[in-house]
């Protein structure tokens, strides 16, 4: 059977953020059509948002006494995660200006190099083979449209 999950730092903060999100969505759902009738477009969203509020409140109540360990940045959002997300954001921003081949190739090279801490030749090799394979299989084989730079 799966082991019980150890309590993670930042859990209460996350629940509070979800509570805020749920309350905001409940308000937005109310704004759709208020209580005009029991079958108006806003009723079901309101019910769903209310369920979110109630369930996250239940989570908060249940976890109120459990002390979470410290070390959010180390255990939940370590540098490796933040840097990888930053690299993904860079990939997204680069897709349209440079096209898929350059953006994805650079992303793969940089991310593999970063994750395996070195060995640039291997990283470059994997990046080139992977981009070539994706291009051949998906662009040429499956006829999938990949982002392309306009100036190329």
């Amino acid at each position: 059977m799966p082991q019980p999950r150890p309590r993670q730092p930042g859990e209460r903060m996350f629940s509070l953020l979800l509570l805020a999100l749920s309350l905001f969505l409940l308000y937005q759902a109310y704004a759709i059509s208020g209580f005009a009738s029991v079958s108006s477009p806003g009723v079901f969203p309101m019910v769903a948002a209310a369920v979110m509020v109630v369930s996250i409140a239940a989570v908060l109540v249940r976890e109120r006494r459990e002390a979470a360990p410290a070390g959010f940045m180390r255990r939940v959002a370590p540098p490796v995660l933040l840097i990888t997300i930053a690299l993904i954001v860079a990939l997204m921003l680069a897709l349209e200006p440079t096209g898929f081949v350059i953006a994805a190739g650079t992303f793969l090279f940089a991310t593999i190099l970063f994750l395996q801490r070195g060995r640039p030749v291997r990283a470059a090799l994997v990046a080139v083979v992977a981009v070539a394979a994706i291009y051949v299989i998906f662009r040429l084989g499956f006829q999938v449209v990949l982002p392309e730079a306009e100036w190329l």
């Binding site: 993904i88 990939l91 997204m92 897709l95 898929f100 994805a104 992303f107 793969l108 991310t111 593999i112 994750l115 992977a130 981009v131 994706i134 998906f138 999938v144 990949l146």
Partner: peptide, 9 residues
């Protein structure tokens, strides 16, 4: 990184 690229595609 490969999963990310495939997800993007």
């Amino acid at each position: 990184p490969l999963i990310v690229v495939l997800s993007v595609v």
